[in-house]
Computed example of a mutant assay.
Amino acid sequence: MSDQESKSGESAGTQLAPLPSSAVEVRLREQMASAGRYREKSRADGTIRVYTSAWEAFARWCDQFHIEALPADPAAVATYLAWMADEGLAHSTISRHSAAIDWKHRTIGHPKPTARDDNNLIRDVLSGIRRDQRNRQSMAKVPVQAQHILKMLAQIDGNTTRAHRDRAILTFGIASAMRRSEIVALELSDIAFVERGMRVDIRHSKTDQEGRGEQIAIPNGEIIKPVYHLQKWIEWRGQKPGPLFTRFDQAGFLTNLPMSDRAIARLVKQYALKADLDPRSVAAHSMRAGFLTDAAEHQASIRKMQEVSRHKSVDILMTYIRSAESFDDHAGDSFL
């Protein structure tokens, strides 16, 4: 073997020699940490917020009964899900809470309750809830239109922080046509007031899981005046960064914590009842439906409706338009 070949062999051998065990461990830890970071990005921030809120609700329920939340016993999880059904929550919401409980266990490093559920309690309870709700006759939800919002506003008395917040939520809710999960996720910094109204940055939404963000415009308005009511609320809320719509604590003091989407739903039902609307036929989504119904009745174009509602498909928007135009040029006009 020549000297050059010998040196070349030594060089190759040096490059291929195994790393010291300590160096291997360091590299492995770095790569595992990288995998963890990518895993955290697998879910949109909005989904993580929803899961976190759901987990906190379960933890509070456990505290009431002195039950260990982490790790949770499958029987405790099944009981909690049944309680939620008795409280009137939808199967989709309950399933999301079950998934959030599993998610929390997985992120901490505990086995999921569903994986330890040898008797299939959780699965059977969820199945029973779904079957019960499917069989139960439910009242169709009706849209809450601008005329209804005016009646609801008339039921809010006083010049208090809570009164201004509730007025702002009702008027903003219909004017933005936003989902309740999107409303509670808004930050003060997402609102920009301009001469003709305001612009709202929606950082995350149901149809924007990658978090690209969307923006909508809301005019000042002359009837329900959504911009005026939001400005009044912000005057009382203050300019402290954080959630746009915040909750009150048990003592009635304003906090810097976001409202829950369930709180939005309860608020709409509360004022619907006071305005002589059947609260069973009203949901938070009714404000989104109300905007689209009013827009269709006032002959807004599909494109302009879509700019606000952000529906990816026009099929749903067409149902509002067909309903609004159902009596126009009716086939029976000439003989009925």
Rank of each mutant, 00 (worst) to 15 (best):
T207E: 12
T207D: 15
D208H: 09
Q209L: 13
E210I: 09
E210L: 12
E210K: 08
G211E: 08
G211D: 02
G213A: 07
E214S: 10
E214K: 11
E214F: 08
Q215H: 03
I216N: 01
A217F: 13
A217E: 10
I218A: 00
I218D: 00
I218R: 02
P219L: 07
P219Y: 04
N220R: 13
N220M: 14
G221P: 03
G221Y: 13
E222S: 14
E222M: 15
I223Y: 14
I223T: 15
I223M: 14
K225H: 15
K225S: 06
P226G: 05
Y228W: 11
L230T: 02
L230V: 04
L230I: 00
Q231N: 06
Q231P: 01
Q231K: 10
Q231I: 04
K232F: 07
K232P: 01
K232C: 07
W233V: 01
W233I: 06
W233H: 03
W233M: 05
W233N: 00
I234A: 02
I234Q: 07
I234E: 04
E235V: 14
W236D: 00
R237T: 02
R237P: 03
R237D: 01
R237H: 01
G238K: 04
G238H: 06
Q239R: 11
Q239D: 10
Q239P: 08
Q239F: 10
Q239W: 13
K240C: 08
K240T: 12
K240H: 12
K240A: 14
P241N: 10
P241D: 13
P241H: 12
P241L: 09
G242W: 12
P243D: 04
L244K: 06
F245S: 01
F245M: 04
T246H: 00
T246C: 15
T246A: 12
T246R: 11
R247F: 00
F248E: 06
D249R: 05
D249P: 05
Q250W: 07
Q250S: 11
A251K: 08
A251R: 14
A251Q: 11
G252E: 02
G252M: 01
F253Q: 06
L254F: 01
L254Y: 02
T255Q: 07
N256Q: 14
L257C: 04
L257P: 02
L257M: 11
L257V: 06
P258E: 06
P258Y: 06
M259C: 10
M259Q: 06
S260F: 12
S260W: 13
D261Y: 14
D261W: 13
D261C: 14
D261E: 15
D261G: 09
R262S: 14
R262N: 10
A263Q: 15
A263T: 10
I264T: 02
I264R: 04
R266H: 14
R266D: 13
R266L: 10
R266I: 04
L267P: 04
L267F: 09
V268M: 09
V268H: 03
V268Q: 05
K269M: 11
K269L: 10
